[in-house]
Write a protein that binds this DNA or RNA. Structure first.
Lengths: 220, 220
DNA sequence: TGACTAACTAACCAGTCCGTACATTAAACG
DNA sequence: CGTTTAATGTACGGACTGGTTAGTTAGTCA
């Protein structure tokens, strides 16, 4: 670690509250995701930043509030990604499939976020409940899905009378399980759900399943 | 706690290794499920049994091995339940639906087990890997599913060329997500996935989805 | 019935962990 | 340029935690 004393990194420590806060959040996200809430250590998080533990208490108040802040940032990033969704110019079937694929990709790209959500569920979402920001906002994806479903039903393409939140749960289930339960599933069934070679297979399978459900003839 | 000195509870402490071990496991299961691996306290587990902390180390060796033993017992109970599966006398469509329903019910009835699995995944299944018992055995449900799928394909009922492990993942995803992510999903979308009034709705939805997928015309 | 051992208990230890009191310094400001 | 204040660092307290040491008791079997 002698590189930190190189000429590119001047020894003078400039003060930058925003940068310090952001760095703490980045490190804390990694540590909480890696070890769980109780498993993560405040001292260790501090040691992995360029600042000290004192700053965590100065900016966030404590371990609990730090975890809440980590969740807030993680969720806000998804919302940003969801706001970039541009699927409503497609026909309903293609739009739903595209939405499922975007969800699939997002889960794969953010395993730390998936872990944080698992951890927060172990704690019965108490930090979300404690966060005004998190309990207020909702997901843009739901609104998009609602509109696609309306269009699809109106044009007679979709036979199923599903509601957007339920369909979102259905799509998320598979994407979430694949990442979150990768390890136990792999250990017990000898199949790595996140193997790169099977990625397209699962991505297609998810889309097929959702479309099959929405367009099935539910006569019985 | 004066009741422990009542006449129904004789003060004489009878020695019973099996009972003591079982009681430790039961309490440890609850505590680990409630608080996570790092969050659970060996002292607290001991305090909630009728024995002492020393016995945990005497019988299990340490916290890590205790957690492994908890997992082993939890998984062995599922396997027992799966061995009671009796669906192969049904036609393939009914059999798959029944299997999905049994899985659905099992998840709902064992939230502690779901939490343990989530926790074990945070730890990247290291305890399963450390357990000869767990890494050896496989799931009876997979074999049952494989046979149903074969029959269904042979009779032309199922168009999808799915493999049993993937379909098992698909079914488990929804059942698992519904229980495991109940809290964050409820907090963010204002819908309790485990609400008793919506139970039948989700149970049917899962079956519909699986059957739709298996019987869909995948021409495109 | 007395020696032996598995089952059990209480007390403790060394290291860890969250949080804080206190001191200090870089920037903002008039 | 002197004062103020936000930002930062040091060092440590006190409670806790996993694990252990040393000793006790109930059952059993020769």
């Amino acid at each position: 670690m002698t590189s930190t004393e190189g000429p590119a990194q001047p020894a003078v420590r400039t003060r930058d509250a925003a940068r310090t806060k952001a760095e703490i959040l980045t490190v804390a996200t990694r540590e909480f995701a890696r070890l769980g809430y109780a498993g993560a250590r405040v001292d260790e998080i501090a040691a992995r930043t360029r600042t000290t533990k004192r700053m965590i208490y100065y900016y966030f108040g404590g371990k609990e509030q730090l975890f809440t802040a980590v969740l807030e940032r993680a969720y806000s990033r998804i919302r940003e990604a969801e706001q970039l969704l541009d699927v409503e110019h497609l026909d309903p079937v293609a739009a739903v499939r595209r939405l499922a694929e975007v969800t699939f990709d997002h889960h794969e790209e953010h395993p730390d976020f998936i872990r944080l959500v698992s951890i927060e569920n172990i704690h019965e979402a108490e930090h979300i409940a404690a966060s005004a920001e998190l309990s207020r906002i909702s997901s843009p994806a739901i609104e998009v899905l609602r509109r696609i479903l309306d269009t699809g039903r109106a044009s007679g393409l979709f036979t199923a009378d599903v509601d957007a939140v339920d369909l979102h749960a259905m799509i998320s289930s598979f994407c979430f399980f694949r990442i979150a339960n990768r390890h136990t599933f792999g250990a017990l069934f000898g199949r790595d759900l996140v193997d790169a070679g099977r990625r397209e297979h699962y991505r297609t399978m998810l889309g097929d399943m959702i479309i099959a459900y929405l367009t099935a003839d539910r006569a019985a």
